[in-house]
């Protein structure tokens, strides 16, 4: 196993003309010059060196590039970077906090909810968004429907569903224990 993140420095020169865009990326302010037609996914991967967000189709057909924009799961391949002005963008790199895996990441590991791992960041970004969205039902059928924009060709769907439901339980427990702590 290798940590290959060192191979992904910030480097690429953007083409002229450019425009400046400011947004919050994984809780850090970012200000950068991008081409007017630069796509968020390419900016993340090639300009910012954040390779966790994957490209599987480049046309909103596979879900591998799913990120959160203002908390909503979106396909980064169909979004201009310039449209993100003032927004909060979260990628898989922003999912874990202070070195600790997010409960969804933990449950994906525990449930073996991936194989090749290429669709996995997108799966987890969709999963975290749906767990935060009270409008989406919590039963298996609702989760499967809501997750259907994330294709896993390895076919780890069963384990992904298990992992999501397990993370739901963990998050509920965490919330309950926090509430318990706050209650005298």
């Amino acid at each position: 196993m290798m940590d290959d993140s060192v191979h992904s420095p910030t480097r690429r020169e953007p083409p002229a003309p450019t425009l400046n865009v400011n947004f919050t990326l994984n809780q850090q302010p970012v200000s950068l010059d991008v081409a007017p037609n630069a796509v968020l996914l390419d900016v993340l991967r090639e300009q910012l060196g954040l390779g966790g967000t994957k490209k599987g189709c480049d046309h909103g057909q596979c879900g591998a590039c799913t990120v959160h924009v203002d908390g909503q799961a979106m396909n980064a391949c169909l979004r201009l970077a310039a449209m993100c002005e003032g927004q909060h963008v979260t990628t898989v790199e922003g999912l874990s906090r202070e070195g600790e895996l997010h409960p969804v990441q933990q449950s994906f590991l525990a449930c073996d909810a991936f194989q090749c791992g290429y669709c996995t960041p997108g799966q987890m970004m969709s999963a975290t968004a749906l767990l935060n969205d009270p409008r989406i039902g919590s039963d298996d059928a609702a989760v499967k429907e809501a997750m259907s924009g994330n294709i896993c060709r390895c076919g780890a769907y069963k384990n992904i569903l298990t992992a999501i439901q397990q993370a739901r339980a963990t998050l509920a427990d965490d919330a309950a224990s926090q509430a318990g702590e706050e209650t005298p």
Partner: peptide, 12 residues
């Protein structure tokens, strides 16, 4: 609406 596209695309 919910029969169309995917969660991500509907969000956009």
């Amino acid at each position: 609406l919910l029969a169309g596209a995917s969660t991500q695309l509907r969000n956009m």
